[in-house]
Amino acid sequence: MSTSTTLEAPKKGTWDGGNEPLKASYGKLMMWFFLLSDAFTFGAFLIVYGLSRHKHLPYTGEPEAFTFSTEYWPIPEKVFNAFPGLHGMDLPLAFVALMTMILILSSVTMVLAVEAGHRMDKNDVQKWLLWTILFGATFLGCQAWEWAHFISGTDEGMLLADGTRVFGANLTINQYGPPLFADLFFFITGFHGTHVFSGVVLLIMIFINTVNGVYHNRGHYEMVEKVGLYWHFVDLVWVFVFTFFYLI
């Protein structure tokens, strides 16, 4: 036990980790810069989406008369209008609204866990971390359903010029519009989903550490703060994906 105590003792020397640039601890500062670089990646994805969308023909007809075609970029409300258990009903953006709410809620429970960590309240940290894991996992489940629906397609599919019909989407064929639309859907929401998955794994790790009292004995819950920064970033990215992919 004495060895672990010396290992965790803070280093005070200027060149020994005692100096904190920008008055943020080493771990938090590095998390900020990692998130900045990650934001560039997501930014690149969304920029490509904007560019591809503007180099395709927009749909100019009446929204009511909209049909799927590879000729023009689809209206998101007409693509994402399904809800689990309500087959065949037109519920534009309802499911993605639910997913957004779940993710915002998970961000709140995360910040409550961080707040409990500041007060060294182990029970509260455990409680809020569990809620965050639950919401995160629920979001992943929703996304799995969203993907399954997008891949298998609607009942009508898309009528091609030769009279055949295409159902669903993959990387080369897409019933909803130009193939690039499906590719960008898979890459953008897939990359975001991978981040949510990593976040849930990190949350489970810090939950186990919290239960074992690792942070309590260390004297601070900074690890919860760092994972919290990552988790809020995932929520932040979803806010942008939601706007640029589903709303606009």
């Binding site: 920008l22 943020a24 810069f33 961000s107 995360m110 910040v111 919290g228 970033f233 806010v239």
Partner: peptide, 18 residues
Amino acid sequence: IVAEFMHLKHETKALIWC
């Protein structure tokens, strides 16, 4: 989200600009 949840509002000015 960034200012309140990620606490950036309460960090140093230099970090905010970074």
